[in-house]
């Protein structure tokens, strides 16, 4: 099938991650895919008609919006790859303030010159503008997760979905503890076998979609939510906060009020990758 790889506003990490699949990617390329459009790798300047468009990045400029609409019109299937495309990603943290306003001085000049694409008011995931057939969240998604998904699409099978949370893929034992405070990632060394939350670290595994294989908790590092919410929390971000407070309180023995107080200190903790507005994100069965 003919494939295009489209980059909107992003860090290019998703396509890097796809390349990291190495031999597995070469197999997909020789068996199933012919990549015909990708500004990163191919000199074609016009968007062609394709069977499958793999889109990394979200919509930050008017040009991004124009491009994603054109890609939609010319592609049979669209896969949103990575958090920027699926949820707005890290760039959507810029939505806490008006980047557009801050840029106003430079921006007015840019508009005068009429050469640069105008910024949109916020950073948006692509589903706010076009229908998306499959969402593969992750920052970036693991190489094999992408390859399995792409391979399924190529062979016409529905891709395997991951609906649960990272804890299901984590080897650590949950043992309720009696702590008096929460810890930062570098404040103490983590025990290798115990649940990180039981040790007082703010690990987001219980709020985050599985499918990554839990690389961060395996490395003694807290999960920071880069796969976005699981099915059960997809439309209920307020529940997310309440759930996290409950989980931490239950596993550390710290009272809920005190947990809330400590979490309040760092407002970036659980919206790191999803601080955007979803308008048409109503396709639970399409999140891989």
């Amino acid at each position: 099938m003919k494939v295009s790889i489209v980059s909107l506003t992003c860090c290019a990490g998703c396509v890097s991650s796809l390349l990291n699949a190495g031999e597995a990617l070469l197999d997909v390329l020789s068996d199933d895919f012919e990549i015909v459009y990708s500004p990163t790798f191919i000199d074609l300047k016009e968007v062609p008609n394709v069977d499958l468009a793999i889109v990394e990045g979200g919509v930050r400029t008017e040009e991004d919006e124009k491009l994603i609409k054109e890609v939609r019109a010319k592609s049979r299937i669209i896969v949103a790859l990575g958090m920027c495309a699926t949820h707005g990603g890290i760039t959507s943290l810029g939505n806490v303030l008006s980047l557009k306003k801050i840029l106003e001085k430079e921006h007015s000049l840019i508009l005068e010159a009429n050469k640069l694409p105008e910024l949109k008011d916020l950073m948006y995931p692509i589903c706010n503008f076009v229908d998306v057939d499959y969402y593969v969240p992750g920052c970036p998604p693991m190489p094999l997760l992408m390859i399995h998904t792409l391979k399924s699409i190529a062979t016409g099978k529905p891709p395997v979905r991951h609906q649960s949370v990272v804890c299901t893929e984590c080897h650590r034992k949950i043992v309720p503890a009696k702590l008096d405070k929460l810890y930062g990632i570098y404040e103490k060394e983590a025990d290798h076998e115990l649940c990180l939350v039981s040790q007082g670290f703010v690990c987001l595994g219980s709020l985050t979609r599985d499918g990554c294989g839990a690389p961060c908790p395996r490395a003694d590092f807290t999960c920071f939510g880069c796969r976005g919410p699981p099915d059960s929390l997809l439309y209920r971000s307020r529940d997310m906060y309440a759930l996290l407070v409950k989980v931490i309180s239950a596993r550390t023995g710290i009272g809920e009020e005190k947990v809330k107080e400590e979490l309040y200190r760092n407002p970036f903790i659980f919206h790191t990758f999803i601080f955007s507005r979803f308008e048409r994100f109503k396709a639970r069965e399409r999140v891989i």
Partner: peptide, 28 residues
Amino acid sequence: TEIRGFDYFLRGMDAERLPFIISRICGV
């Protein structure tokens, strides 16, 4: 022709979270 604004929105973030958030400037 693109812009994201990291220098602004990271203000106020805990230093311990900076290294792995800042890495998102560039995936390459």
